[in-house]
Simulated scan of single mutants.
Amino acid sequence: MSGRDLLLALVVIVAWGMNFVVIKVGLDGLPPMLLGALRFALVAFPAILLIRRPQLPWRWLLAYGATISLGQFAFLFEAMHHGMPPGLASLVLQSQAFFTLFFAAIFLGERLRAASVMGLVVAAAGLALIGLESDAATPLFAVILTLCGAAMWAMGNIITRRFGNIDLVALVIWGALIPPLPFLALSWWLEGPALIEQSLRTISVNSLLALVYLSFVATMLGYSLWGRLLSRYPAGKVAPFSLLVPVVGISSSAWLLDERMSPLQMCGGALVMVGLLINVFGPRLWRRAVPAAA
């Protein structure tokens, strides 16, 4: 990978890692479902007037938007609203990799690799430690909601695999058409019209800046650069960079929000990262080791 493209990859990782701190800032001024509605409305409009719709049936576009956009972020925003720290959220959300493995085995008939199963066991042990340490500061309910968000992200990954080679930016923008109205309906139901009106009437500069970041930096810029990298290099060379997202998420949360994980949560987080590393690099190392042993 060239130095320029390596820099672009790092820009994406920082943008996505900082995303969790920005979500926290946005939630300080807006209720979670309203934040989701406004975020995806800004992603979709006016971009859909400039970007051609991907060549997909509407049912698949609906499935993508309902899972990877609406489902993932409805659970994530609600989890952080209920006390999930941003840094820890960036880590737990990466369990989507293992949900993806299971869903691929169930719906696509893919075989579970030995290294992936080993990585899953290690990461599950780390998540169990994080769950055991959950208390008033990090409620177990918030951890469960984050895992639900990871599962929805994974389901979106399975749906995306059916699309083949497709313009990722166009998919994200047109998929953003799906969430705003369901988010608004959830906001009306869970948060109430009075809170919606008050939040919009008294919206702060910080909330507006958070919306701009979530919509244009984390989503449009992030996916544009990521799609550009995927078009130039094999997925196996680009995907491992995503392992740095929780590193940036945890570091930025500690620096900007003074978030501190307990020793047990740190051990759990380390196990989750080791599990992710085994899942990403384990099969490659196994393929090299087997011929050498033979």
Rank of each mutant, 00 (worst) to 15 (best):
L6H: 04
G109T: 10
I23S: 10
V290R: 15
N206D: 11
L120S: 05
L27P: 05
I203W: 06
Y213K: 10
L112Y: 01
S116A: 15
V217G: 09
N165D: 12
I203D: 01
L257M: 08
G87C: 01
T146G: 00
P234H: 02
L50Q: 07
L7R: 13
L214I: 06
F98Q: 01
W188L: 15
V122I: 12
T100L: 08
F107Q: 07
S251V: 15
A74S: 12
L230F: 01
F98M: 05
V290P: 13
Q72N: 15
A142R: 12
I173R: 14
S95A: 11
L276G: 02
L211S: 06
Y233L: 07
A15Q: 10
I173E: 05
W58S: 08
W226C: 05
W188F: 06
G26Y: 02
L214A: 07
L211W: 11
M273C: 08
L35F: 11
I130E: 03
P139D: 00
L209F: 11
F183S: 07
Y64A: 01
G83T: 02
A115C: 13
S69F: 04
M80Y: 02
F75R: 03
A125I: 04
S252V: 11
M1H: 12
A44M: 02
A293N: 09
L208S: 07
W189Q: 08
F102Y: 05
F99H: 05
I250L: 11
G126H: 08
A185Q: 07
L93H: 03
Y223N: 02
P283F: 05
N279H: 14
Q55C: 09
A218Q: 11
F281W: 13
L56P: 15
F183I: 07
R162I: 02
I48F: 09
H81D: 09
F77M: 03
M33R: 05
V212W: 15
G109Y: 10
R39D: 07
I68E: 03
S224T: 13
A154D: 11
V290G: 04
V25P: 13
G249N: 07
T202H: 13
L120E: 04
K24E: 02
W16D: 02
S187G: 12
A194I: 08
R53C: 02
A151Y: 01
A176I: 03
F75T: 06
